[in-house]
Design a protein around this nucleic acid. Structure first.
Lengths: 339, 339
DNA sequence: CTGAAAGCGCTAACAA
DNA sequence: TTGTTAGCGCTTTCAG
């Protein structure tokens, strides 16, 4: 804050000029080793901290990246932020966070605010977002952006995600292999890319196994605990011979709601109904029986996002190539789907 | 980023000067309404965004606050960050986050980096931190700091926390009221203020009830799942008549480890051993029986932290008064401790 | 109520 | 290899 000492002070003390001191800090090749060492050691001695605002005003760079997510407190996003921070911090960057609260308007607003403050952005879309103009404008202005997990569909943008389709496919295939015949699906909001993909993976697995897709076994129910509870009620109200013998949920939260309701109604998991969720949340191992789930590889995803963003930022605009990294999710089989 | 339009451009177009435009944006009292409105409407029309770096260079303020926590991904901290962001965002601030990884060195390092970038700081201490000089220096430089949850002990600093002592006391009292006689405690790292307080609350409740404190029922075991598992093993290895009939854990994670081990060994919860945790994590309601726990009031805490910080930042240094807000935690009683 | 002018601390073209 | 100089865009005293 009130850091008084400047490169001028250092320069004076070394009987040189501000430019030389400035260049010394940048390890400029045309400054002598000797000079650099004198500058560095004096700086350390005096506890000098370069004024970032001044540097940012000159260069447009402030060593900060921004992360925009729907909600920071959701474990998936907080783990991603953690992972991103770990990587970019190593490279001398700080992380600015903002929340869209799943709202397109809010997303535009925080994007605007971030534009002034960051050198690059990592973004996971709001559920609400259907229009990408705000991002187009940002990209046009030269802002490096990497989308992750929830990415704009049909767009040529930098992105890191898992193969949600394959994750869902594997989960459903696993249940089929275990002998399940009637597999229900708790689908998430179809406006969000990842949930759409998961539903498609579910459908494909059934198709390949020659199991007819039944509309009434696909519950468009959202991804909350309550959504899962409601779905369970509907399932329990079905005639016994129409009841599913397995459920693949697009989120662990809704899986949990279902799970609890089924147990409360003395349905045995996995014997009567097998359950597989998506997200591999911590609590999956706490419940009884432990919940099978698809791991989203949060840590790796964060690392890839950070690496891609750093790479983009350090490349001249002309050399930047749009990249799309797709990680393979991993099905974690636990008791809830073992037959 | 490449935002070309400046207040000079606006000034020219309105045949006035930069000073007037600048003042108009600050809603300066000595600028005419008419002028202000002309400036504001033109600014909106042109999509003008003031250059924050320039303003920060001049004023030293950049409309950013920093949050330093041990780990972002832990649900307690991520919920707090979420809550803080919600409040300060309303006031036009962004949030910079950094992690100490429980290390004193790292904490000092990120503090340094933040000093250059933020107008105020919210901090929860690393487990490792025993020396507060780095904070003293920051405060001397005029940086407003609010500590939360894990605060420096015996220091006159701004802080927001819950009454961990009372939370623990209430939890243990509740078990005593339910008829428990031998109550064990999974204690957390005693170097961290909150865990120390929780242990003291535990001790006090026993004392008041005339129950002797037995050293071997206090497990100094850490706050991870594994720690809880280990503690369970030790408990199970006790002769039957020395086994506790209740356990108060200083964290939900270690409670969970204990919980699972006890169940695996056919100990009935709460009949054989009642369990109460601390933290009121989401998963407490997912497990069977549901886990009683002490709620830390994350949302309120975040709100208070943000409000206190905003208040401090907007007060001239001379008028700032050190405050300490203590929230009352709430015991949430669930099946795991009902007898 | 508005304008002129200086300067926040750093960087980088240009010059030596 | 180093120095000179101008200026990034904004704020703010001082002067009308």
């Amino acid at each position: 804050m009130n850091n008084n000492i400047t490169i001028y002070d250092l320069a004076k003390e070394l009987s040189t000029t501000a430019s030389t001191v400035s260049r010394a800090f940048q390890d400029h090749p045309r400054i002598s080793r000797k000079m650099k060492e004198k500058v560095w050691s004096l700086a350390k001695e005096r506890g000098f901290q370069p004024n970032l605002a001044a540097s940012q005003l000159r260069t447009g760079k402030g060593r900060v990246i921004g992360v925009i997510v729907p909600r920071i407190g959701r474990s998936f996003f907080s783990l991603l932020i953690e992972s991103i921070e770990n990587v970019v911090n190593e490279a001398g960057y700080s992380v600015l966070v903002a929340q869209s609260h799943e709202l397109w308007e809010k997303e535009k607003q925080v994007l605007q605010a971030m534009m002034q403050k960051v050198d690059g952005l990592a973004i996971s879309l709001a559920a609400d977002t259907i229009d990408y103009q705000h991002f187009d404008q940002a990209i046009e202005k030269g802002m490096p952006i990497v989308f992750f997990d929830r990415i704009p569909l049909f767009r040529h943008v930098n992105s890191v995600r898992i193969d949600d389709y394959a994750g869902a496919y594997d989960a459903v295939k696993h249940m089929i292999d275990r002998g399940c015949k009637r597999i229900a699906h708790l689908a998430g909001p179809q406006g969000i890319s990842v949930y759409q993909q998961r539903q498609m993976g579910y459908v494909q697995a059934l198709k390949e196994a020659g199991i007819p897709i039944s509309e009434q076994l696909v519950y468009q129910c959202g991804i909350t605990l309550e959504a899962g509870t409601k779905a369970a009620e509907q399932i329990l109200s079905l005639p016994l011979d129409e009841r599913p013998d397995a459920v693949f949920s697009s989120s662990d939260n809704s899986a949990m709601g279902l799970f609890k309701s089924l147990k409360n109604n003395n349905i045995k998991i996995p014997e009567d109904i097998a359950v597989v969720g998506f997200g591999n949340e911590l609590f999956d191992e706490f419940v009884d029986p432990m919940l099978s789930s698809v791991d989203q590889r949060n840590v790796e995803m964060g690392i890839e996002v950070a690496k891609m963003l750093l790479e983009q930022m350090n490349l001249p605009i002309a050399d930047r190539k749009v990249k799309d990294i797709v990680l393979k999710p991993q099905l974690i089989i636990r008791k809830s789907s073992e037959k």
